[in-house]
Simulated assay, not measured.
Amino acid sequence: MRLRVRKAAHFLERTGLALAGAACGTFVGAHVGTSFAALTTIGFLLGMIALGAIGFYLGIDIPPLPFQGADEDSNASGKIDAAEFLSAFGTFLATLAAFASVSAVVLRLNLHSVWSWLILIGWLAGVTMQITAGTIARLRRAHAH
Rank of each mutant, 00 (worst) to 15 (best):
A142R: 15
T135K: 08
G90I: 08
P64M: 08
R138T: 12
S101C: 03
I80K: 14
T41V: 06
T128I: 06
M1Y: 06
L58S: 07
H31N: 14
A97E: 05
L39Y: 14
S113R: 01
D61L: 08
V114H: 06
A133H: 03
D73I: 01
R2G: 09
M1E: 12
Q130I: 02
V32D: 08
L12H: 09
T91K: 11
A82K: 08
Y57A: 14
A70C: 11
L58W: 05
A83I: 02
V32S: 00
G43H: 11
T135I: 08
G21Y: 03
I62N: 04
S74K: 14
S116G: 15
F89I: 15
K79L: 10
S113A: 15
G25N: 08
I121L: 12
I62E: 04
L93C: 12
R141P: 00
E72I: 10
T26N: 01
L45Y: 02
A50D: 03
I62R: 06
A76R: 15
R108L: 08
L65A: 13
G78K: 05
A50Y: 08
R141A: 15
T40R: 11
I121M: 14
A50I: 09
G134W: 05
F67V: 10
F99G: 13
R4F: 12
G126L: 06
I62W: 05
T128F: 09
S35H: 06
A88R: 12
L86F: 13
P63D: 09
H10R: 14
G16Y: 04
R14N: 06
L120V: 11
T34R: 13
Q68V: 15
L139F: 14
L107N: 11
A94H: 05
A97N: 05
V127D: 03
S116F: 03
A37E: 15
G25L: 12
A30C: 03
T128Y: 06
F44E: 04
D81W: 09
L120T: 09
G43K: 12
V102F: 12
H143Q: 13
Q68F: 02
R2C: 01
A144F: 10
H143K: 15
M48V: 01
V28C: 02
H10F: 11
T128V: 01
G29C: 10
L39P: 04
V105A: 04
I80N: 05
K7G: 03
T15G: 02
A23W: 11
G25D: 07
H10G: 02
V127F: 06
L86E: 05
G126S: 10
H145L: 15
A30H: 02
A104K: 05
L17I: 01
G33C: 08
G122W: 07
S77I: 05
R138D: 12
L86C: 08
A100S: 09
T40C: 03
A125P: 00
G21Q: 05
A20R: 04
E84M: 13
L51H: 03
H10C: 02
A30R: 09
W117D: 04
H10P: 00
Y57C: 13
